[in-house]
């Protein structure tokens, strides 16, 4: 458990640094910006207390907001994503898993993990873009932004997972 705690702490710091210093600066074709800090939420142990999940999600969102100057926005989305995570896990966790494992290729199986991570990322990006653009939303541009950001984020998260599973 201590190992998982340490891993999550390192991941928290690394993801905040990467998101704020690198990924927030990317705006491919004017539409696609990777949102990878959701990977922290995806990788929390499956049986972790729901209140702890909410608190960690809020902290992650607040950290991104503080360094990215978007006060409240990412915190709001992360809390909603953290809340929805319970039902996503309910949908995707293989029935034979009873331990408090960390979702990964090896524990969930590659296909199930990718579906779980993909759904979580897509929901997060839809919420983020919808709330961020708000009154300025133009439907086809919003759809393009969501599709572009999702594709890019999903590829990066896939890469992260390959790196993590090779360790």
């Amino acid at each position: 458990m201590t190992k998982v705690f340490l891993q999550q702490t390192v991941m928290f710091i690394l993801l905040v640094l990467l998101q704020v210093s690198l990924f927030n600066q990317i705006n491919l074709f004017g539409i696609a910006t990777p949102v990878v800090y959701i990977y922290f939420l995806i990788k929390l142990p499956v049986r972790l207390n729901r209140n702890v999940v909410l608190l960690l999600a809020a902290l992650m969102g607040l950290a991104i907001d503080t360094f990215g100057y978007t006060l409240g926005l990412n915190m709001l989305i992360m809390v909603i994503s953290g809340f929805m995570r319970y039902w996503l896990l309910y949908l995707f966790t293989p029935r034979d898993i009873t331990d408090n494992v960390v979702p990964s290729f090896s524990t969930f199986g590659r296909n199930i993990f990718l579906r779980y991570a993909g759904t979580a990322t897509l929901l997060h990006i839809i919420l983020l873009n919808a709330i961020e653009t708000g009154a300025f939303a133009v439907p086809h541009l919003l759809a393009l932004r969501i599709a572009g950001s999702f594709a890019l984020s999903y590829m990066i998260i896939y890469g992260f997972e390959i790196l993590c599973s090779e360790k």
Partner: peptide
């Protein structure tokens, strides 16, 4: 309750 409290805090910060 915790979810609603956090949503309120984030919403307050945002708005």
């Amino acid at each position: 309750i915790f979810f609603l409290v956090l949503i309120c805090i984030a919403g307050w910060l945002l708005i």
